[in-house]
Simulated assay, not measured.
Amino acid sequence: MSDLMHDYGLKGSTVKRGYVQSLPKYITLCERNYLRALKVMPEEEVGNQRQIKMGSMDFFIEIDAVAKYTTDISIRQKHGLSNHIGEFELAVRLYHDAQVAEVIQHNYHQRVKPSYRYPNPNMHHKDEKYQLNAFLADWLLACIESGRVPLNWDVNNGLV
């Protein structure tokens, strides 16, 4: 073994490996996101929207695209805290055949890659895709447990 290490210049040192994502952990996260997303989504028709209120913030879930095996949704945050805080947006794709949902884009940035070298010019985390999907999981859970959906009841059934 020492001859092999010497041949490759590994003389007593450890080889540094890049970030390796745990696929079972990631798939489990995306499966849970799929089930939670189904609970908060509006009817699956392009342009349909659902508003969810949490505290002083309003979140809007909109159906962007519907295909045979996928649905693309966008989640936007609007808040009354400050004019200096920008809008937050996640683009999420639901894969109906695999029953998983994952973040594909955030805040109008490029598509999210599975992993990034670190350091990198855009300061992405090595596991940024996992972190964004973990955030989505927390956000969906908060919506389910604490969110309020404003009701627009037409008391007169349009007979005014």
Rank of each mutant, 00 (worst) to 15 (best):
V46P: 00
V40I: 14
V40D: 02
I73G: 05
H109D: 06
A91M: 07
K113T: 10
E87S: 12
Q131V: 08
I73S: 07
Y118V: 13
L132K: 12
M41N: 10
E43I: 13
E87W: 00
I63H: 06
D138T: 07
Y118E: 12
D97T: 07
E87D: 15
T28F: 02
I85N: 04
A65M: 14
D7R: 15
K129W: 15
L141V: 01
P114A: 06
M41L: 14
D3E: 12
G12Q: 09
Y116C: 10
M123C: 09
V103A: 02
A134F: 11
L132H: 06
R17G: 09
A67M: 11
F88D: 08
K16V: 12
H106N: 11
Q49G: 07
K25C: 01
F59P: 04
Q110P: 01
V155R: 14
R32K: 14
I75D: 05
D154R: 15
W153R: 15
S146R: 02
H96V: 07
I73L: 13
M54H: 01
V92S: 07
L10Q: 11
V66W: 08
H125S: 05
D3P: 06
H6W: 10
P42L: 05
K39N: 10
N122E: 05
V103F: 05
Q110K: 10
E62F: 00
P24E: 06
T14F: 04
Q77H: 08
P114N: 12
L35H: 15
Y95H: 09
M123N: 13
S2W: 03
Y8M: 07
Y34W: 08
W153F: 01
V92D: 11
A37Y: 05
R32I: 10
S146E: 07
G47V: 02
Q21L: 15
L132Q: 03
S22K: 11
M57P: 00
Q110T: 12
L140V: 05
F59V: 05
G47H: 05
G80M: 07
